[in-house]
């Protein structure tokens, strides 16, 4: 078993005003919120403001906070809503905050070792190309799924869609990505070398 404290316990300690748990929660989740924020905007000041306000309100309202057994999910959902409220004001006040016309920018990057091998490099770039071309909502869904390890239920909640839709977004994305890797047997051998 992991020597990790359960989210539920940490959250209750926070609600009871134990500031050590506040620090623990902050240091575990703030970098991930920040990274998530960078997918929507490159304005770092805005992201920092939202992170600070979010946690500041957490301190102010800690007695009245709801329950959660997944702190990261709880915070990401709140973070996204706040960020979109501000982005909406900044960019285009007429746009509905959670409509399809937002951007989700991910910088995929390759390990140096992979670049050394031409064939792997080419295949990786193909896959990255396919990732870039994915519709924005699919991109966000697979980010939440594979980067943050969220369930379809949680993805649905954060993206304000149905659970069925969140599952569909992930499945469609994976299907397109799968088609981008045509793998000659030669590549399999190379992959084996890398992931040994």
């Amino acid at each position: 078993m992991q020597a990790q404290l359960k989210d539920e316990y940490k959250w209750n300690q926070l609600r009871q005003g134990n500031d050590i748990y506040f620090s623990m929660i902050y240091s575990e989740s703030a970098p991930r919120l920040y990274r998530y924020g960078l997918k929507f905007t490159q304005n770092r000041d805005t992201i920092e403001d939202v992170v600070q306000d979010l946690f500041s309100d957490l301190i102010k309202n800690r007695e009245t906070l709801g329950e959660t057994d997944n702190i990261l999910f709880y915070l990401m959902r709140a973070f996204k809503r706040r960020l979109f409220r501000i982005l909406k004001k900044e960019i285009n006040p007429d746009v509905e905050p959670l409509a399809d016309n937002y951007s989700f920018r991910v910088t995929y990057s390759i390990e140096q070792e992979i670049i050394k091998n031409e064939e792997i490099h080419r295949q990786t770039l193909n896959l990255f190309g396919a990732l870039e071309k994915l519709p924005v909502r699919q991109k966000e869904a697979i980010y939440l799924k594979y980067r943050e390890g969220m369930s379809y239920h949680e993805i649905a909640d954060i993206m304000e869609i149905s659970i069925e839709s969140s599952r569909n977004l992930v499945c469609k994305a994976i299907k397109s990505l799968r088609q981008s890797i045509h793998t000659p047997t030669q590549l399999i051998q190379l992959l084996n070398l890398i992931f040994k």
């Binding site: 910088t107 995929y108 990057s109 896959l127 594979y146 980067r147 990505l177 799968r178 890797i181 992931f195």
Partner: peptide
Amino acid sequence: IFMIQAIRSDKE
């Protein structure tokens, strides 16, 4: 594994 690692390769 290759696919999942590529999706996770975001190094912001």
